[in-house]
């Protein structure tokens, strides 16, 4: 098994009054530069799986390797650095910082590692705004943007550090079908242009259709794993 992300025998149990196991012996590997979808109904465990891949959550059992490194053994600060430099996040709710403009939001992951933006990174931000067709709202606060503009800004933010991996959790969950189609095209364009690995959690079949591989999860288990391009 090889790939930019590897999951080996990953289990997740939430402990409470009643223990609830949501993932069962997940083994997965994601190749660099591929576009992947994880689908399943609500409560199937797809978001928990994405959270574990993103290092925001940890498995109860099993190993997660990113770039060949075992994340289970990393400290909180090492994980924070890994997320900042290697992973870009796009959430269902854009989670832009309302106190900052679109440009400042986009630059935020860069500013976490360097205190002042370089000319190169500002130029990259401009390119992303152009590519995502949101140059006009560059200096607007997120509260003054439409849902589609907010999500595109969130995508630009996820891309600013040129991460190897983009993790998207229901990125079009709150968008209309037209905007959803546009976002899917943007993901594909980025994937092809920068070779970024995409893992998109969605229950929208139309979104999954745009990817190379669809992993279907039910009750915490992988029930199908179809690679479109490779048959």
């Amino acid at each position: 098994m090889s790939g930019i992300i590897q999951l080996k025998q990953v289990n997740k149990t939430y402990h409470g009054a009643v223990d609830l196991q949501v993932l069962f012996d997940i083994n997965l590997s994601f190749e660099a530069g591929t576009c992947n979808a994880i689908t399943g109904v609500s409560g199937s465990g797809k978001t928990t799986l994405l959270n574990i891949i993103s290092t925001l959550d940890c498995p109860s059992h099993g190993d997660v390797l990113i770039n060949g490194k075992l994340v289970n053994e990393m400290t909180k600060n090492q994980l924070a650095r890994l997320r900042n430099e290697t992973i870009g996040f796009v959430f269902q709710f854009h989670h832009l910082l309302p106190e900052f403009t679109a440009l400042e939001n986009v630059l935020m992951p860069y500013l976490i590692k360097r205190w002042r933006p370089s000319l190169d990174v500002v130029r990259r931000a401009d390119e992303l705004f152009e590519m995502l067709e949101i140059t006009g709202i560059k200096h607007s606060l997120s509260t003054r943007m439409s849902g589609g503009q907010q999500q595109r800004t969130a995508i630009a933010r996820a891309l600013i550090n040129t991460p190897k991996i983009i993790l998207a959790d229901e990125p079009t969950g709150n968008l209309d079908s037209e905007t959803t189609a546009k976002i899917c095209q943007v993901f594909r364009a980025i994937n092809q242009r920068y070779g970024t690995t995409f893992i998109i959690v969605t229950h929208n079949y139309l979104v999954a259709e745009h990817t190379d591989r669809i992993i279907d999860i039910k009750d915490g288990r992988i029930i199908s794993d179809k690679k479109k391009n490779y048959g």
């Binding site: 924070a80 997320r83 989670h95 910082l97 992951p109 976490i112 933010r157």
Partner: peptide
């Protein structure tokens, strides 16, 4: 929400 998202993006606990 802001702090959570900053942490997800890689800001460490100290900062």
């Amino acid at each position: 929400p802001e702090i959570g998202i900053l942490k997800a993006m890689g800001i460490n606990d100290f900062n």
